Lab assay of single mutants.
Amino acid sequence: TIDDAFRAIERAIQAENEGRYREALKHFLDGGEMIVTAAEKEASQKVRNLLLHKGKEVLEWAEHLAEWILE
């Protein structure tokens, strides 16, 4: 659900702030994927587009974090 997705993102932010970057990455990926999944089930085109945009933002952040971890 969207609530689960945002809880995962909150955990990711907390982990990132505490320097637990790999854990943060996992939570960002989980949250982003949950948002995209919820968007695919959404009946309203406007809400679907907003959710897809937010999911994409979260997944892009996860990608940047992963690249930073690997440096």
Rank of each mutant, 00 (worst) to 15 (best):
T1E: 08
T1D: 07
T1K: 06
I2V: 09
I2Y: 10
D4N: 04
D4F: 04
A5T: 02
F6E: 03
R7L: 13
A8I: 14
A8Y: 10
I9W: 06
I9D: 00
I9Q: 01
I9Y: 02
E10H: 07
E10W: 13
E10P: 00
I13S: 01
I13C: 14
I13Y: 07
I13W: 09
Q14K: 06
Q14F: 07
Q14C: 10
Q14A: 11
E16R: 11
E16G: 11
N17Q: 09
N17P: 01
E18P: 03
E18K: 05
R20D: 02
R20K: 07
R20I: 03
Y21H: 01
Y21K: 01
R22T: 10
E23D: 11
E23S: 02
A24L: 03
L25V: 09
K26M: 07
K26V: 06
K26N: 03
H27D: 04
H27W: 14
H27Y: 13
F28S: 01
F28H: 00
F28E: 00
F28A: 07
G31R: 04
G31Q: 05
G31S: 05
G31W: 09
G32H: 15
G32A: 15
E33R: 15
M34T: 03
M34G: 05
M34H: 03
I35S: 01
I35F: 15
V36Y: 09
V36H: 07
A39L: 10
E40L: 15
E40I: 14
K41R: 13
K41Q: 08
K41L: 06
K41G: 07
E42G: 04
E42V: 13
E42D: 02
A43T: 12
S44C: 13
S44N: 14
S44V: 14
S44I: 10
S44M: 06
Q45W: 08
Q45A: 13
Q45C: 14
K46M: 10
K46C: 14
K46R: 12
V47I: 15
R48L: 08
N49T: 07
N49E: 14
L50M: 09
L51C: 06
L52Q: 04
L52S: 04
H53P: 01
H53Y: 09
H53F: 10
K54Y: 15
K54T: 10
G55W: 14
G55V: 12
K56G: 03
K56D: 03
E57T: 09
E57V: 13
V58A: 07
V58E: 12
L59G: 02
L59Q: 07
L59Y: 09
E60F: 05
E60V: 08
A62C: 05
A62I: 09
E63T: 14
E63Y: 13
H64A: 11
H64P: 01
H64D: 06
H64V: 10
L65K: 00
E67W: 13
W68L: 13
W68S: 04
W68Y: 09
W68V: 04
I69V: 04
I69N: 01
L70T: 09
E71Q: 13
E71C: 12
E71S: 12
